[in-house]
Nucleic acid binder design. Structure first.
Length: 463
RNA sequence: UCCUGGGUAGCUCAACUGGCAGAGCGGGUGGCUGUUAACCACCAGGUUGCAGGUUCGAGCCCUGCCCCAGGAGCCA
């Protein structure tokens, strides 16, 4: 009989007595007299498959090479396990070693490592429990996001990664150039001559797909982007990356409250999806990373978010009996300590703060009738802080033009953005969700560098 | 970028007031009839981040630099 090739995940679903072939990487080998136990993991699920090699099943010389990290193919019969830790195990008949792993130098041990150390071996850390779980959840989350929008007839837009406009006027950007940095072409007045550069003008990596999404929203109604974005800020925190992924839905005919409704429905949907599809991985996070994760997620999936205005938020903060490092005053942005107080202590659940002062928000946010505030919203969640930022966009040509001017921006740079308001303008809204921050929230992981495969931070782009 | 803490064995850490650099884990060898981050015994393993300085003597004190973490700012 030919053995059936299956993943570890599917091996557990086969009937006892099946002859199976599995391939994967050895997590550990435990020897006893007359019997060896091999933990085999292939990434298909959290749990490994226990392979039992009785004395003489394979040559002693082969068995010695089956060490932590080795890659093997095993053929054997699925049998009920006498021990309680696993329902079934594979009784080994034959084994092929693809690649050994010298135990004297293999950097991954059976026991725990610090995340700082594991970041230095990002090419191997994915073979461990924690990062296996992280990247399975990451995969499931990406799927849930597409499913949510596709079920609701949103169009997936591929916004460009290279851009020639710093349209938000926010954040340092990475320059993209093919100019020879050792011999820069100069204009007569001594400046760098970007007309000789690849695009004929300065180019950068995008910081957001929002403005492009607006273009599509004003043709397709409901759209979303989901792609990498880049910030050249010298940010050294557990919540910032130089390269990260962002989801940015943009909807025509949505006002700020429709926008907030969508954001809340969206968060609940993707949390529910991960709760339903990544139970085994979430249990690990709950047990080993953060023992509040499961309750928090279930709570958020079920209870309504709090909604307050910025002005109310300031009032709540001013009434709080605590010493602020930065006392809350109307007109300045909420500090991290303020956001955390609101979501973690005052409301103890996600909070949507709306209608911020115009001075502290971007030019494209719609001006309210009071002319002091704009239709911005931030969604704050416990432990992570700001997870979503969004707004209703300014759809009135004259008002937008005036805002561009008063922010000191060059209106020529925004000619196509202004055109959207000149031709067939409509009220529209959107928001951005930081994909990695969402993952931190779902997994309880404390550092954003541990939820992205290959983190890019100041001074670090190895791998 | 600023503030704080740290860098000692492959990993995680200890080393009193400046006085012989140590433990657990991992690794090697041997043992153990079914293990579950297995267990027991023994063995090996060090340019104390880098460069200077003070001192009879520096892991420890001083100066400069590099790297890491936490907090802040910026934001997602």
């Amino acid at each position: 009989m030919e053995p059936k090739l299956v993943s570890v995940k599917h091996a557990y679903e086969q009937p006892v007595g099946s002859l199976l072939k599995v391939r994967g990487w050895v997590r550990s080998r435990r020897d006893s007299k007359g019997v060896s136990f091999i933990e085999l993991n292939d990434g298909s699920r959290f749990k490994s498959l226990q392979i039992v090699a009785e004395a003489g099943a394979i040559p002693e010389e082969t068995l010695r090479q089956i060490t932590t990290g080795a890659c093997i193919e095993a053929v054997g019969v699925l049998t009920e396990s006498p021990a309680p830790k696993q329902p079934v195990e594979l009784k080994l008949q034959s084994l092929h070693l693809y690649g050994g792993a010298d135990p004297e130098t293999y950097p991954m041990q059976k026991k725990g490592h610090s995340f700082e150390y594991l970041r230095e071996i990002a090419h191997l850390r994915v073979r461990g429990n924690t990062f296996g779980a992280v990247f399975r959840v990451r995969n499931a989350l990406a799927h849930a996001i597409h499913q949510f929008f596709q079920e609701r007839d949103f169009l997936y837009v591929h916004s460009p990664i290279i851009t020639t406009s710093d349209c938000e006027g926010a954040g340092a950007m990475f320059r993209v150039t093919t100019l020879d940095l050792e011999h820069l072409p100069r204009t007569p007045d001594g400046r760098v001559d970007f007309t000789q550069d690849f695009f004929g003008k300065p180019a950068y990596l995008t910081v957001s797909g929002q403005l492009e999404a607006e273009i599509f929203a004003l043709a397709f109604g409901k759209v979303y982007t989901f792609g990498p974005t880049f910030r050249a800020e010298n940010s050294n925190t557990p919540r910032h990356l130089a390269e990260f992924w962002m989801i940015e839905p943009e909807m025509a005919f949505y006002d700020l409250h429709d926008n907030a409704d969508l954001a809340e429905e969206f968060l609940k949907y993707i949390i529910g999806y991960v709760l339903n599809h990544c139970g085994e991985d979430l249990e690990f996070f709950h047990e080993r990373i953060d023992n509040t994760v499961l309750e928090t997620l279930q709570h958020v999936a079920e209870s309504p978010f709090e909604r307050i205005t910025y002005t109310e938020a300031i009032r709540i903060l001013q009434g709080a009996s605590r010493d602020w490092e930065f006392p809350p005053v109307w007109g300045s942005d909420l500090q991290t300590e303020h956001e955390r107080y609101l979501t973690e202590e005052h409301f103890k659940k996600p909070v949507i703060v709306m209608d911020y002062p115009r001075e502290i928000k971007a030019f494209y946010m719609r001006l309210n009738d009071d002319e002091r505030t704009v239709r911005a919203m931030d969604v704050l969640v416990p432990r992570v802080g700001e997870i979503i930022g969004g707004s209703q966009r300014e759809e009135r040509y004259e008002v937008l033009l005036q805002r561009i001017r008063e922010m000191g921006l060059n209106e020529q740079d925004y000619w196509w953005y202004l055109d959207l308001r000149r031709y067939g303008s409509a009220p529209h809204s959107g928001f951005g969700l930081g994909f990695e921050r969402m993952l931190m929230y779902l997994t309880g992981m404390k550092n954003i560098r541990d939820v992205i495969p290959f983190p890019r931070t100041p001074g670090n782009a190895e791998f």
